[in-house]
């Protein structure tokens, strides 16, 4: 175990990516829950109350940017750190993510270790863990 144990919500519609990340983060001692639909993502956040969210940009039914904007404006988890995952790494995509309130931004294809380190760094920054 290398990081801080926390509740991680992984919102990602690619099942094999979810499975691999879940395996890696669970092995680090995190409690990982997954969700794949953009439309009900906010409900999932509200239900689970994660310490950190890993959020894909391209989701079915709703974009990750829109979900993040609503989350930041919400009254239930506006400060939750969010690591955004996207297939597009252009500056304007980074700017959009930061404008929407992302805590970190990561471009696919990523290395598992980069995701782990980013999550642990965000948890340490916020002290937002179990």
């Amino acid at each position: 175990m290398t990081g801080v144990q926390a509740k991680v919500l992984l919102i990602e519609d690619e099942p094999n990516i979810s499975e691999a990340l879940t395996f890696v983060l669970a092995r680090d001692g995190h409690d990982v829950r997954t969700h794949s639909d953009g439309l009900t993502a906010l409900d999932a956040i509200k239900d689970y109350g994660p310490d950190i969210i890993v959020l894909d940009v391209m989701l079915p039914n709703r974009s990750g940017f829109d979900i993040l904007a609503d989350l930041r404006a919400s009254d239930f988890a506006p400060q939750t750190p969010v690591l955004m995952l996207t297939a597009r790494g252009q500056k304007k995509d980074r700017d959009m993510a930061i404008d929407a309130g992302a805590s970190r931004f990561m471009t696919k294809p990523f290395a598992n270790d980069d995701v782990r380190q980013a999550i642990n760094a965000l948890l340490r920054q916020t002290g937002n863990h179990a």
């Binding site: 990516i17 691999a20 990523f110 598992n112």
Partner: peptide, 23 residues
């Protein structure tokens, strides 16, 4: 199409790094 390609590559990279790790 590009999203499909990148998603596949991400999944392959993520899964293969688990298999190739020393753990």
């Amino acid at each position: 199409a590009l999203h499909e390609v990148i998603s596949s590559v991400t999944s392959i990279r993520s899964s293969s790094s688990i298999l190739s790790s020393d753990e």
